[in-house]
Nucleic acid binder design. Sequence first.
DNA 1: AAATAAATTTAGACAAATCTAAAAATATTT
DNA 2: AAATATTTTTAGATTTGTCTAAATTTATTT
Lengths: 218, 218
Amino acid sequence: MTHTSTEENYIKAIYHLQLSRDSVSTNLLSAEMNTKPASVTDMLKKLRTKRIVHYQRYKGFSLTEAGNRKALSIIRKHRLWEYFLSSKLGFEWDEVHSMAEELEHISSDELITRLDNFLGNPAFDPHGDPIPDHRGKIRVIKQVSLTEVPVKKTATVSSVKNQSPEMLELLNHFHIALGTKLKLNRRFEFDGSVEIKIDKYPATIISEQVALNINCTL
Amino acid sequence: MTHTSTEENYIKAIYHLQLSRDSVSTNLLSAEMNTKPASVTDMLKKLRTKRIVHYQRYKGFSLTEAGNRKALSIIRKHRLWEYFLSSKLGFEWDEVHSMAEELEHISSDELITRLDNFLGNPAFDPHGDPIPDHRGKIRVIKQVSLTEVPVKKTATVSSVKNQSPEMLELLNHFHIALGTKLKLNRRFEFDGSVEIKIDKYPATIISEQVALNINCTL
DNA sequence: AAATAAATTTAGACAAATCTAAAAATATTT
DNA sequence: AAATATTTTTAGATTTGTCTAAATTTATTT
Ligand SMILES: [Mn+2]
Ligand SMILES: [Mn+2]
Ligand SMILES: [Mn+2]
Ligand SMILES: [Mn+2]
């Protein structure tokens, strides 16, 4: 079964929305896709005939097993291309997403297999998100947001939630990158901000808003 | 000005057809694109409003200066991706074309600039075809088909016209690849076949049909 | 110079993905 | 349990790229 780029983008969006919520609505998906709810309904009917979603009118929808597999294969492509752009072509992580959004629709499976090997079978993309293997298997790691790291503990930065240029600018300023080890000195109850210490750099304070977007392994 | 993948495929086809003929017809282009002449007429009207072709109904068409530049930028992308697939991912030259046919439509110019540098600014693709530089400039080399190589002269294989798996199979059998040096021992007038000698391999005879598809530098 | 053939264009239709506006179903308030 | 609000779906258009069939223009024969 082949899918258009548009169908693939819908499938991926449904998958991502299903991760955080236990049911996805037509309105929510239309917001995510920047389309109108009426267009979503049309697409759901189409994806139902292709057995990608379970869908009954007015009763909601969800990915089928095949839909889930398809979503993971698109995400695999997306993240492998992001890794390529970052590791081989030297792009920053705030630049890779839009290019990967196009590259993920290149059809050849053999290309992806070889790209994966060429890159050394990376487990995580430049944002720290896991890259599904060729069977769609994702290596899950235990992560906590920086706001949850206990005082006096050392943690390793493992991924970022907000992947905007503005976030990258802040992280660069704080000398924080994926893999950076940091110690959480103290937590200020008033505003939820935290003081962290990295290596040779002086300790600095990070707002709760930023800390919430940084994931760590302990 | 942005273009759809379909428009880009038409632009590229017009460019390639114009190389060998001095005027391209609606029927010829429709054959090249595997569409009907009526569809070509529709597309020509569209490309005219975008100032990509000069076109007057019933009077023929040709690429404008902007159309030519656009064609060269698509061909540059196509051939750089082919080079990537061949040199970095180890694909054979009969496998790269269909993937490059999709990859050439990835929009980012910065991606292509960096890919070009990553690959070491190659001048020729895996088929020996020249890769236009970022300004659309093509390095032209003097080539002759193997049928035109003088007797007793040594030549270097520089490109292949027919790029099918069947052709690759034959070339592999003859130990011929791009860059291979060969001496033309003799030419048989009866059927136009030629006897060639490569290094340590015994001399062999190549049919005119094959020889016509092999280009060499002298 | 007609007649005929070939190439090209127009007219009208269709599938994909979108939209707006209206209708229908479901959920929430009173 | 009505009334009202929200969500979702349908109906009917629009755009892009394609098609078939018919009309028009240009080219080639007789
Ligand atoms: Mn995409
Ligand atoms: Mn990512
Ligand atoms: Mn193409
Ligand atoms: Mn090529």
